[in-house]
Design a protein around this nucleic acid. Structure first.
Length: 426
RNA sequence: GGAGAGGUGCUCGAGUGGUUGAAGAGGCACGCCUGGAAAGCGUGUAUACCGCAAGGUAUCGAGGGUUCGAAUCCCUCUCUCUCCGCCA
């Protein structure tokens, strides 16, 4: 959620930012409407506080009058308070209504894009920030198979079995497939640890408050699996529980940046897709992911962002996968993000780029709802910047490894993974 | 699932209607003391909102109620803990 103050102090930037996100002039009016409601809210509170102050003063006075035995004077003051109550109730109601309305409206506003973000309608308008310049996988004497065929051929991932156990989009990894998955998780976690991240194993279900604080609720309610009976949500990403660890805290500046990482399965309902995009591991309801999260000083957050980009990039280099980096345009960027870079790997048989990581700076958009702040030496608390990124999303990485490293006999395991898998080929 | 206890500030912990935003202790910070340290002494130690400011308002799990006045009384909800049962 945006800080309401910037609608006043930085209105021009807000308008430009929302325009990058393709807000129509009609919708832009929301900004002024919110400020107006907030003006009214301030006015109401000033009045309300004055009335409450009088009630408090009278009550105190009544106390001492009673002790002094002056009942008649006490009665006069008591009467006055009784008369004020109607007004107080009215103002309180209006204040509560305004607070609700302001929040409801404010939640409609997405984060203001960073100045480097271009306007654009969709993923087609994303800018290729860094293209792949190395060699592409080549195959001599045979046509590379898509990963779903390889999965079946070597009996390492069973999608049909997943359907039997649960439903479509719940792959079953087995044998060397399962071990490859586990190897990747260990590799990613070890790399994160080396980069200074503390490993977290969080709950896989969260309560409503937690889902709200990182912005999954109310915007993306439909994306999450919901346990009706206990009012829990299955996490769509480790970002949710991990970022919430520090919810409500006031850190000292010396604690920053906080670096956290976590492996979790991720559960996504992802309704409404179809076609070849969803085939195999391209889009599933449950997948594994290692997430990195940083809580940073506002002055440092873009430096932190580039370090996170480097981290992810190194993973892909070590895995020997062709990759490219996109800077998302205003139309494709997530609601909560100020700047997002996507990493895509090339999957040789499908001949397309698959998104395997998304690294974002949310600035104060998340911390505002998280109430996550820090304090300089003898300064006032101010909101931190939060950042996160996938490092990396497993399913599609597996797809790319299988497709790119195949030969007619099997699949070669990238060298860095071999110590984790214990085998060199599938 | 059954029975009970309880949620107060950074922590512990008092507090059953009236200068209690909240005793006391601990922790932390600063100062004094010291050759230095410990001990000791002193001072300070929440957050949000409104206000140019002075200052004001709110907050003792959450919400509602009683009252001139509530951390203190009443109702609802919620969470935690203990015991029993079940269980990896």
């Amino acid at each position: 959620m945006l800080e309401i103050n910037i609608l006043r102090t930085d209105k021009q930037r807000v308008i430009e930012g929302l325009t990058k996100r393709n807000f129509t002039p009609e919708r832009l009016k929301l900004v002024d409407q919110i400020v107006e409601m907030d003006d009214r809210r301030k006015f109401v509170q000033t009045n309300l506080d004055q009335l409450l102050a009088r009630v408090n003063a009278n009550s105190k006075e009544i106390g001492s009058l009673f002790k002094a035995g002056d009942k008649s004077q006490a009665e006069v003051l008591r009467q006055e308070v009784t008369n004020l109550k109607g007004q107080i109730k009215e103002l309180e109601n209006e204040q509560n209504r305004l607070i609700d309305d302001i929040e409801t409206a404010l939640i409609e506003l997405p984060n203001i894009p960073h100045s480097s973000v271009r306007q654009g309608k969709s993923a087609d308008d994303n800018e290729v920030y860094k293209d792949w310049s190395g060699p592409m996988p080549e195959f001599e004497g045979f046509d590379p198979l898509p990963h779903w065929d390889l999965a079946e051929k070597y009996n390492i991932i069973d999608l049909k079995l997943g359907v039997k156990l649960t439903g479509s989009g719940f792959p079953v990894f087995r044998g060397k497939g399962a071990k490859l998955e586990r190897a990747l998780i260990n590799f990613f976690l070890d790399e994160a640890e080396k980069a200074g991240y503390e490993e977290i194993m969080p709950p896989l279900m969260v309560n409503e408050e937690t889902a709200r604080a990182t912005g999954q609720l109310p915007d993306k309610e439909g994306q999450m699996y919901h346990i009706e009976r206990d009012k829990f949500y299955l996490i769509p990403t480790a970002e949710v529980p991990v970022t919430n660890i520090l919810r409500g805290e006031i850190l000292s500046a010396a604690d920053l940046p906080v670096q956290l990482t976590g492996y979790t399965p991720c559960f996504r309902r992802e309704a409404g897709s179809y076609g070849s995009d969803v085939k195999g591991l391209n889009r599933v309801h449950q997948f594994d992911k290692v997430e990195i999260v940083q809580i940073a000083h506002p002055d440092q957050s873009y430096k932190v962002l580039s370090r996170m980009l480097e981290h992810v990039e190194q993973l892909l280099i070590k895995l020997e996968l062709p990759y490219r980096i996109l800077r998302l345009c205003g139309g494709d960027m997530g609601f909560t993000s100020a700047l997002t870079f996507d990493f895509e790997v090339f999957s040789a048989a499908q001949r397309k780029w698959l998104e395997v990581s998304s690294v974002s700076n949310f600035e104060t958009f998340q911390s505002n709802r998280l109430k996550l702040r820090f304090r300089e030496e003898d300064g006032k608390p101010q909101l931190v910047h939060t950042l996160n990124g996938s490092a990396l999303a497993l399913a599609r990485i597996v797809a790319a490894i299988l497709e790119n490293n195949q030969d007619s006999e099997g699949v070669k395991i990238p060298r860095v993974l071999q110590q984790f898998t214990g085998f060199e080929r599938i």
